[in-house]
């Protein structure tokens, strides 16, 4: 069932550090960052939340983005996601959001 794969030495276009931020910040930040990236660009997301190991690959599948893999360091995980397509997606399953109006709400 696990869709997790490990990678090394991926060069990201953008890095977001949310180490010590709790669930569901990993999904909200991911959603926010992916909206800003261009198709094909790679996001590196740093988080120490282990629930992300399950959530992020699943989120990528649901939203049509490409989950490249995760690199584990002693203190946190580095997730790599490549932006694909231009699907509208929901950050948290079951919670639909209006576009734009909500932009910037996670800060």
């Amino acid at each position: 069932m696990s869709k997790i794969k490990f990678v090394e030495n991926i060069k990201p276009d953008v890095t977001t550090d949310i180490v010590y931020m709790m669930c569901p910040m990993h999904l909200l930040k991911l959603d926010e960052m992916m909206r800003e990236l261009e198709e094909g660009q790679i996001l590196e997301l740093l988080t120490d939340y282990d629930g992300a190991l399950e959530d992020i690959p699943e989120w990528c599948e649901k939203t049509g983005n490409e989950f490249l893999g995760v690199d584990e360091t002693p203190d946190y995980f580095k997730f790599y996601i490549r932006k694909r397509g231009d699907k509208k997606f929901c950050p948290v399953p079951g919670q639909s959001k209006t576009e734009d109006k909500n932009k910037g709400d996670k800060e």
Partner: peptide, 18 residues
């Protein structure tokens, strides 16, 4: 920006989860 900090109050996503 970029300063790692552990929240004093845990819970929802208010204030960017901080």
């Amino acid at each position: 920006e970029g300063t790692r900090i552990i929240p004093l109050i845990f819970g929802g996503i208010q204030e960017g989860g901080r």
